[in-house]
Nucleic acid binder design. Sequence first.
RNA 1: GGUGAGAUACUCAAGUGGCCAACGAGGGCGGACUGUAAAUCCGCUGACUAUGUCUUCGAAGGUUCGAAUCCUUCUCUCACCA
Length: 432
Amino acid sequence: MAYNFVEELKWRGMMHDIMPGTEEQLAEEVTAGYIGFDPTADSLHIGSLIPIIVLMHFQKAGHKPIALIGGATGMIGDPSGKSAERNLLDEETLAKNVAGVKGQLERFLDFNSDAENAAELVNNYDWMKEFSLIDFVRDIGKHLTVNYMMAKESVKKRITGEEGADGMSFTEFTYQLFQGYDFLHLYQNKNCKLQMGGSDQWGNITTGTELVRRKAQGKAYGMTCPLITKADGTKFGKSEGGNIWLDKNRTSAYKFYQYWLNSSDEDSENFIKKFTFLTKEEIETLIAEHNEAPHLRLLQKRLAEEVTVMVHSQEDLDNAVKASSILFGNSTASDLKSLDEQTFLDVFDGVPQAELSKDELTEGLDMIGALAAKTNFLGSNSDARRALKENAISVNKEKVKEDYKITEADLIANKYVLLQRGKKNYYLVNFV
RNA sequence: GGUGAGAUACUCAAGUGGCCAACGAGGGCGGACUGUAAAUCCGCUGACUAUGUCUUCGAAGGUUCGAAUCCUUCUCUCACCA
């Protein structure tokens, strides 16, 4: 095999823990391996990219990736890494989420190929729903002791009350048995011998391999990748606006692109290894070039490009780059006006808006009113006066003074006026 | 239950009769610089019909020409004693 899965993950820093014998197993034959995805929302966010990419590497290495959607386990809630009991999702939401997550996974893995190592998509609800409580308790529960389950870190933490934890329901305690059974089921029905996941999944994975050993006298393997962290300690995948989603409707391609572009130097070295498929040589060259001229931010740009194209499309990337140059470059009112309405709206997607009547423009709309009273862009008239005095206000990217009046001549696409306070605060007024 | 201390703006925290819309620090915002970064420097940070006016220092009353500041009652927080 030209491509060594384990070696590949190791140099990319994506290997946290691996069970002894896993490499030998992978070297020996085409192996099926799976990762579970929780349908906690109808879209995955960029935290789920790592497991997806691991599966893609897995397939590139000639093995068979299985993506498991936790339709059943999602109904229970994984206690790993949580200090409080989770809220349960109702069936309807869950069905919607499963469909959403499934659609996204199809972007990255080809589930319809005839190849020997074609990717496969399964939903554990399909085999869990028929399982009766009695059967489950007799067939599965019998093979593991409570002592074993209690010894897991995720359980121990909650029981001993560390970190303000407040106990754990039977429901969540059962979770690891469910996930363990998934592995057993896939082992028996799909000859799946490997489970992968984030390092917080180690406990659940070992429960699975243990179950395979005891119940099926088989040998199964596990591997985890480190959880993504950022150098400044803030949470990965979050911005002020919340999660960065893979769904364009939740996080626009522009914002998605920006998230990566704004990575720190330190993080971007790390991220480009993990989130792109560039070769080791390419990445080393990039890092070297970046260190030569850090202000050009080659790493961040390449990272943002690669990931945006992978998750969205080349077209989305082009638009995001264009939008970025309008927002952050030296664009002028005429640049703005040259945009067609759709692109303009895409660029300013998510920017707060207000609607005003076009009648306001006939006499010319004064700045104080435009900023505060009519739009609530700024909190008060005083605030508006201050901002104007500070030379902080722009109309259509051009600085204005307190005596400026907005007229028909300022309209973009005959409808919009772009207000701006400082560099980053935008506000769109829609004249109808 | 008793005694003592305290409550000030987004947070911490000065102010103990007029010079108080209230020192200072942090945060936030803006400007310069810069790499859409970090650091640094400077400015702003109650409202309004604005060289003035109004409301604000736990709540309600009172004293006074004038109260964040003094008095009374109440609410809450903390400390010590039961």
